[in-house]
Write a protein that binds this DNA or RNA. Structure first.
Lengths: 195, 195, 195, 195
DNA sequence: TATGAATGAGAATTCATTCAT
DNA sequence: TATGAATGAATTCTCATTCAT
């Protein structure tokens, strides 16, 4: 165990190990022992910090979602104009995916089918995400920067784009410059719905 | 066993039952017995037609993918102009999702993490899908109907939109008119990348 | 189905097929379907002639045991002197093993552990075999041709020799002239216990 | 769990339980749970020590074979004269069978038909055993203590005698003094092949 | 607090046997 | 009589979780 591990709590250590293994094998094919080995601790220790495998996943998702959401909100606020916000959002999303490849591949999983008990939670988060996007889009409409599109539809579209762009980045190792790509996506969206 | 079941082969019957249960519970949480019950047959009978649970899923995916792909290709060919093609594609996608809700929720699963052995297959299909979309977009570029965008990026975007639109349709039961939505999406895309 | 099969009853046909497969795979690893295929008939047909897999084996063993026993007795009676009887017995045993390789490898199985239900039967047959051998040996003693050895021990020895000689013959394909070998075995035994 | 069990490793405990149940029921009719119950442990625990049912058997056989072989070799070396070696071998064999009844009834099973995968192993061990016996007999010939018999045939005979003598001892509970019986068998063999 | 040996509920799969045709 | 599709009891093995140390 490195010095770094000592400072980071065990809890943190376990979560990071779990993210690695979950992203490699998927939730159902990950064994608690593998996580323990990855973390360099004993199997039983995980249960001192997390009640169950499912709860471990849930906590990872919860925290990651918050982290992601917070980063996106932070970035967006650095600009006033809607077009810039979009560009910055896409850029930030790219950045997040590239910097947190393992986490990303868990965060954008189709949670519904990982665990039945997670469904409700997943639906809620999904709804939350959609709500944020709709508010964001509504803001653009209110500002007169974009046309009065169906915010629901637009949220799904925007969410779909962001939610699928990670696959080539993380899985295929697509080498693309995040600024260029963000610029292109922004162009397409703004041309598509801009005033 | 109903009359309908007699006409449909057992194989078909089992696949349909499996689609229902898989879509309800997810692959890993589906027990072979549940499929058997859903099909109104004995557990052992499934194994007369499919070598294993995994193979049953694989066959469902393979067939569904073909069906989906074939339908999309068919529809697209009914028109010459790229814009119409886009609209028809989106419309057909909506139709497919609405008419095959259970199947859709399996087909757009993140196969990677359902079963390790399925990964290779999943990557291949994903690549295939992307290739088709890129060819389709390239055609639009060649026709001069759209700007010379990065086909890879655009394929990912288009795939992302289609691949996420099913969620509100199938899961939330979003009541949206497919023609209206298709028109809107087409508008956005064509504004975004049209010449 | 050949002409020969038509004359031989189905019952016979099934038993012969079963002997082949049993001897190849062992009782527990033989599937009823394999027997059916070997016999060129349907799986269900076996059950028209035999109540169960176990009974099929039992009948094979019963019949084979009788056949074997009868042959040995027949041969033995063709001679008066004990030494000749021994030689002829060993010769006949060799002949039986060489001519009925598949059957032999079933007949000399350690029945006890093939099927629990077969135990009692196996013990009984074993006892019968031993009794015959002891009578045979006693006769030699009474005739004054051999020394008054412990008939039980001698029966076990003789049975052990006969019961193990089949292995190299059937499994390894040991090429040995039955007359020579019989002569040698007889010599050893007669030297060993002769007067 | 008794005190004795604490000292003996779990591995040992499981093997002993397995020997008991295997010898009672035969390999195919033994359920892992029965072994666990016999050992007084949980079903899953067996798998902490043995990868599979087959491997458990294999290890038992391997170890027992070694133990048996070692004992026989040890005993034989305590004497120089061939006749004594034979007597001691037979005695030691009797002793082994009487002291390890359960193990014996497994060790002299017809492994071939217990499990297909075990065949190769069984053939190899059988060949090994035969080779040892042939060497042993050859030694007697070279010493001029016995006549130049066919060592292969003689090995089969000797192996057959030893390999069948356990049945009455273990199964029937034949009460025979090992010294007396060994003496008699030795007499027979030495008369049979001695110079 | 940390551990990993022990556990047993649970699930996929096999195959002898049945029975409608 | 012959068949083979259908069945489900039975069994191996897995792995999240517990708990004595």
């Amino acid at each position: 165990m490195g010095l770094e591990d000592l400072k980071k709590g065990k809890r943190e250590l376990i979560m990071e190990a779990a993210i690695k293994v979950f992203s490699r094998k998927g939730y159902n094919y990950t064994k608690m022992e593998e996580i323990a080995i990855e973390a360099g601790i004993g199997k039983g220790t995980i249960y001192e910090y997390f009640a169950s495998k499912l709860q471990l996943l849930q906590e990872i998702l919860e925290r990651s979602f918050q982290l992601y959401h917070q980063k996106m909100v932070e970035e967006i606020q650095s600009s006033i104009c809607f077009k810039d916000k979009i560009r910055i959002l896409v850029e930030a999303h790219f950045k997040f995916c590239q910097e947190n490849k393992e986490l990303t591949s868990i965060l954008f999983w189709n949670i519904d089918y990982i665990d039945e008990e997670l469904r409700a939670w997943g639906y809620q988060k999904q709804a939350e995400k959609e709500r944020h996007l709709r508010e964001f889009i509504q803001m653009g409409i209110d500002n007169g920067e974009i046309r009065p599109v169906d915010t629901k539809l637009m949220a799904v579209i925007l969410g779909g784009i962001l939610g699928s762009i990670w696959v080539p980045l993380v899985i295929e190792g697509w080498e693309v410059d995040k600024n260029t790509a963000a610029e292109q996506i922004t162009q397409i969206i703004m041309n598509g719905i801009g005033n």
